[in-house]
Design a binder for these strands. Structure first.
Lengths: 150, 150
DNA sequence: CTGTTTGTTCGCACAAGTTGCAGATTGGCG
DNA sequence: CGCCAATCTGCAACTTGTGCGAACAAACAG
């Protein structure tokens, strides 16, 4: 995602308007590597701008994603995440706490794949599922712990 | 997933009961490579057993998944899919029609990954997004077609 | 500065997918 | 046969996200 200032220009150039809501979200997303959900962004936005609506957050996120400034990341369960990092990269998810982190996978586009016959324009999306350091610490060795976490 | 007969044994051994609903679902899933949704299975089940409830279908699918007989596959959008193939494999999805097919990715577990530091017990889940042969035929070369499909 | 236009925001209702719950039902066993 | 726990069913509720229309406000012209 480009900087808030650049986005402001880009939006105006496309005939979109610059509203305080949008500017706030540009700022909240700028350099944000937490892969927030729409709800999480909404909560942060509310503390700076009480009255902003969740609907507007979704709207703006979708607009940014449509412009290619943002990637919508689906980690397999729970709400969608939004990632201002538009590099060619993938994700690790902690199945316990839901934390998402970017990972760079060398050779992801040259994988030897059997079964793609007939499919065109295929791009891989890789999600690694595991357990982050914090969660591993908090429950060191309990393989019986319920997997029902979210 | 094991055969319906083997599952019947396994269920009984765990103290679970064998009901006609479960047996029907065992049969519908046996060798099923279509990656059906719960709804799709429900529809097929209804034609053999009118009155079976969608709730029971979900229940049984969750039970099978918890027993490791079934994998719940999330393709990023739309309803979840269920896959009786428990091999180490991955999936291609047609973003136009939603068809899912199994693919075998050579070396998926030995990828060179940067950014996994601190994560444990990491297993990759790879979803290739593309366009299947049928869809490529039906709309041969129209990059302007709406991406809003599902 | 004022007015107009057009894109935005907001709130609510709604949709899809899935789960919780409670009462009726039934498989497995003695 | 009869009991009891597991199961089934139907419905309500829940979660995530979208459609819609009225109110609002950027941007711009005059």
């Amino acid at each position: 995602m480009r900087t808030p200032a650049e986005l402001t220009d880009a939006f105006r150039k496309q005939g979109f308007k610059i509203t305080p809501q949008r500017q706030l979200l540009f700022r909240l997303l700028d350099g944000n590597a937490t892969h927030p959900t729409a709800e999480a962004l909404y909560n942060r936005a509310c503390s700076e701008m009480p009255g902003i609506s969740l609907r507007t957050v979704y709207q703006t996120l979708n607009d940014l994603a449509a412009m290619g400034e943002l990637r919508h990341v689906s980690v397999g369960c729970g709400p969608g995440r939004f990632d201002p990092n538009t590099d060619d990269h993938h994700h690790v998810v902690c199945d316990r706490c839901g934390t998402v982190r970017d990972v760079y996978v060398d050779g992801a586009n040259q994988l030897a794949i059997e079964g793609l016959d007939g499919f065109d324009a295929v791009t891989p999306s890789i999600v690694f599922h595991g357990e982050c350091a914090d969660c591993a610490l908090s429950v060191p060795t309990n393989p019986n712990s319920p997997k029902e976490h979210q």
